[in-house]
Simulated scan of single mutants.
Amino acid sequence: MPKEPLQITDPETLRAMAHPLRQRILVELNVREHARAADLARSLGEPANSISFHLRVLARHGFIEEAPELARDKRDRVWRPVVERFVVDRNIAGAERVIEPYLHWLRDMFLRDRDAPGARDDLHEGVASAGFFTREEAEEMTAEVLTVLEKWSERTSAAKRADPDDPRRRYYQLLFAIGPRAVDTPPEA
């Protein structure tokens, strides 16, 4: 059964989730369902002590919790997610910090092969599209896109759970946004 999204309504919790590594840890924990800092460190390519610090921050703000029944002994710390996703109150000062890692990633991905086209072995694709929608049509298309995204998320998460250390399985991200767009003013030359 899907977990309810955590409503972020205070600046401290917002700061806790604004860190891109914490966002990745939460994604990884939701896929694995539980993990130790060492497991996450191996998957994320980060030092275990750094992962441990971020796990404690996530726990302090209610995103994850310890799972002592899964521990091997009293010193073993196993963590599990409490939430799958979160919703940020846009009226909180600094609310834009949560989206900044996504926008940074999008910009980097878009510019990645500018100097060395085809030099990377991963797939990355940037697509911008437009149409003239009614609100109802935009809602219908959004529902269709979200259905496809959910299908692929479930499929790839199941494969990751089956073999969490498969080196071919990498974290890919997709951003989807739809909304009316005004004509932008070009930057000064």
Rank of each mutant, 00 (worst) to 15 (best):
P2R: 13
E4C: 03
I8Q: 03
I8Y: 07
I8V: 15
D10P: 02
D10F: 07
P11E: 07
R15N: 04
A16N: 05
H19V: 13
P20W: 00
P20Y: 01
L21H: 05
R22W: 00
R24G: 09
L29G: 05
H34C: 04
A35P: 03
R36N: 00
A37N: 02
D39P: 02
L40M: 00
R42I: 07
L44F: 03
E46D: 10
P47W: 05
S50E: 11
I51D: 06
I51R: 09
H54T: 03
R56I: 06
V57G: 05
V57P: 04
L58N: 09
A59T: 03
H61E: 05
G62S: 01
G62H: 02
E66S: 11
E66Q: 14
E66N: 06
A67S: 13
P68C: 10
P68S: 11
L70G: 03
L70Y: 02
A71G: 03
R77S: 02
W79M: 01
E84P: 00
R85T: 12
D89W: 02
D89K: 01
A93Q: 11
A95N: 00
E96A: 15
R97C: 02
I99T: 11
L103Y: 02
H104Q: 13
W105H: 09
L106G: 03
R107Q: 12
R107E: 12
M109N: 04
F110I: 12
F110E: 12
F110P: 04
L111A: 12
A119I: 06
R120S: 11
R120T: 11
L123K: 08
V127E: 05
A128V: 15
A130K: 06
G131W: 07
R135P: 06
A138E: 09
E139C: 13
E139Y: 12
T142W: 06
T142Y: 00
V145K: 01
V145W: 02
L146D: 12
V148Y: 08
K151G: 08
S153F: 05
R155D: 14
A158M: 11
A159V: 09
K160R: 15
R161M: 11
Y171P: 01
Y171L: 14
Q173M: 14
T185E: 14
P186C: 07
P187I: 11
P187H: 09
P187W: 00
E188N: 04
